[in-house]
Every structure is written in C-alpha cells, then in structure tokens.
Design a protein around this nucleic acid. Structure first.
Lengths: 188, 188
DNA sequence: TCTCAAACTGTTAGTGACTACCAGGACGGT
DNA sequence: ACCGTCCTGGTAGTCACTAACAGTTTGAGA
C-alpha cells in the first residue's frame, strides 16, 4: 500500500520533488514506518520480488547447454512468466503497467538508474553462485561472470527500448532479439 | 590535491566513515571548495579524465569492422594507452595504483559501485552517439546499444578480476580474454 | 603600474535522507 | 489477567548537498 502511494506521487510530481514525508502522509503512516518497510527511498521504486527467483531458475536448466544460452533463455522465460504469457490485445495487466512505470522513473532519475544497475549486479552474483556451486575453477568462474554480465546487459537494453516504446513490442521478444544481436545465435 | 587527500582517507578509514568535512580539513580547504570541484562525494573517487575519450576513439576505428570488434578493440587499446604499454616487471606506475585503489573502494562500497555502473551507462550512450551520428535507423541503433552494453559489461568483469588479483595479469590481456569468452571470437 | 572583470574561496542557513534511541499499543498464547 | 513479540510513532541527531551572499586572488589589457 505504501509502495503504491509512493509510485503515484513519484509519477505525478517527480521522484526528487517527492519527499519520504509526503509518501508517509499520503499513506497515512509515520515517516519511520516507511523506513521500516523500505530501507531507502529508492527501494520504494525498485523493490521487485521476482529478482531473487532468477538464479534458481538458471540452475534448473539443462547443464549441457552453453552458458550464454542457459542464462539468456532463463531471462526470457522469467519475464514471460512474470508478465503473463503473451501480449494479446489491450490487456490491462497491472504487472506490466507497474514495471513500465518503474522503468520510466529509472530512466530519467540518475539515483534510481544507478541503484538498479547495482541490484542487477547483485543478480549477476546470484546467478554465478547458483551455476558454480563450489567448484574452485577460476577459469570457469571468469567465463560464468562474463556470460551473466553480458546477458543481463543485453536484457537491460531490451528493457530500455521496451519502456521507450511504451511496452508495445512484447518484452520477451525484445530480450530475445537483444540476445540474438549480441551473440549471433538463435534464441527461439 | 583534494582528490589525493580524499583517496588516502578513504582507503585508510573507509569511505562511509570519512565525511566530506574530514577531506576538506585534511586538504586545508573549506567544505564548499570541495563541493565546487567535485559535485558529489562519489566523484572524489570516480572522476576519471579518460572516460570521455573512449567514444572518440571508437568512432576513429575502421567502420567496416563488426560492431562488437570495433568497440571491444577500442576498449583494449584505450586501457593499454591509459595504463602504459605493458606490465613489465615491478614498475611503480601511479596510474595503475590509483586505478587499483579506486576499484577496491568500488567493489566494497555499494554507493560507489552503483555510481560507477551508471557512469558506465553514460559511456555507453556516448559510444552509441559517436557511432550512430544522425542516422535514424532504429534497428541499427538497437544493435549498437546491445554491442556497447555487452562490451562494457565484459570489460567490467575484467576490471573486477584484475582488482581481485591485485593487478597482476595485465589489464588489456584480461579484457581481451573477457571479450573472447563473451563472443567466441578472436580479439588478438 | 593600474583597473576591472572573472574566477576562486569562505560563511551561514537551510533541506532532506537516514539512523539511533526510547516509548507506547495490538495481538496471541498460557 | 499476564507476558513476550511485533508493529508503530516521536525526538534528536548526523551527514550529503544546495542556495545566497561576501571577500579575495588572478590575470589580461589599457
């Protein structure tokens, strides 16, 4: 509830112009209560319950695939799962609208952009840990880091284009296109 | 001079534990003067005069190469240029030590990590702008974004490994390895 | 050598994010 | 009725950062 009030104020009056006090008053709670649930102001925008699931999904894919395909396909399927199966007509998916609003705020707010990129970095680490287990092969670890890092970078470009085009070209498709462009490989 | 005082205090006592006031006192100037030269505390660590040059260097490479090679090779050569030609013996290169110190701070300080990733994002935009000029081909623009984004992501992994290994394996070589691992292509 | 404008520096007072620290109120079980 | 636990609110404070004003230094041209 607090988060939805915050998102409304942020999109209406801008992120910087909205203080945490405003959010608290608007939600009818005290400032401290806001901070108890969202440790930083940025978390009011960026908290996403799907992020931690990605690492587990990566580990669940067949281990004989090349790293890039294994990670990339997971990203495509995870967004397909999170956003609903397909972009059929004028479906007013609230998940999609929330994600679009968050991306729009991210794009023009440096602090949010930076924090999001850092949480993407945390996702990288989670993916690497999930894939590596406890094998102490530094060479494989390096390759895994590179694969995770580049795949997420490609997805980020797809996210930005998706937000720019107001969510039209169907996000999983866009991510697939970005991965294909990056690695000259089919991500059907 | 202010920056060197700041780096010393940050590495000695930690980034968060050092206030901008401490830096100012240590450098013998007022707090405001620090802010005049470095708009944010993070800039005391992250300001790098080489970053803006990359975009120009990318545009200067032969335009018939594939995008990834064009950008990737530029990154390798730019770091070779910035850090001195090669890692020959115990050369006490101050550039190298400064970069290492900055990376170490970045890795364990969330705020710095986030800000650096965002400035990397700015570098991406600069590269895309430099390569695209004013051709309004949205498809090519997308591909350019993907190429720039993935190349910089690979470089970032190389930077982290380089800092982790205390700067031993020669940075340009590491970046080349990361690019090769990412794209299955030779970056000799 | 003098002049004047621009650039640099310092002081003060403020905003806003964020953090202790402490104090009540709402429950669920014994 | 009793008690521990969780959620909430208030207060005071730190720190990054900004705005507005005032004094100083510098350097280029007359």
């Amino acid at each position: 509830m607090i988060q939805s009030h915050a998102m409304r104020l942020f999109t209406d009056h801008g992120y910087d112009a909205t203080t945490v006090n405003h959010v608290a008053k608007s939600a009818g709670v005290s400032t401290m209560t806001v901070y108890r649930h969202f440790p930083t102001k940025e978390d009011l925008v960026l908290y996403d319950r799907y992020d931690p699931l990605i690492a587990a999904q990566v580990a669940a894919r067949p281990p004989d695939e090349p790293l890039v395909r294994r990670i990339g396909q997971t990203l495509v399927e995870a967004t397909r799962l999170a956003l609903g199966p397909t972009d059929s007509g004028p479906s007013p998916s609230p998940e999609k609208d929330l994600l679009l609003a968050r991306l729009r705020l991210m794009i023009n707010t440096p602090a949010l952009r930076a924090h999001h990129l850092d949480s993407q970095f945390a996702t990288q680490k989670a993916i690497v840990d999930a894939l590596l287990g406890d094998t102490p092969d530094p060479d494989l670890e390096f390759q895994t880091w590179v694969a995770a890092s580049t795949c997420l970078a490609a997805m980020h470009v797809a996210l930005m284009k998706w937000a720019q085009e107001d969510g039209h070209p169907d996000l999983p498709t866009l991510i697939t296109q970005a991965l294909t462009a990056a690695f000259n490989e089919d991500f059907n």
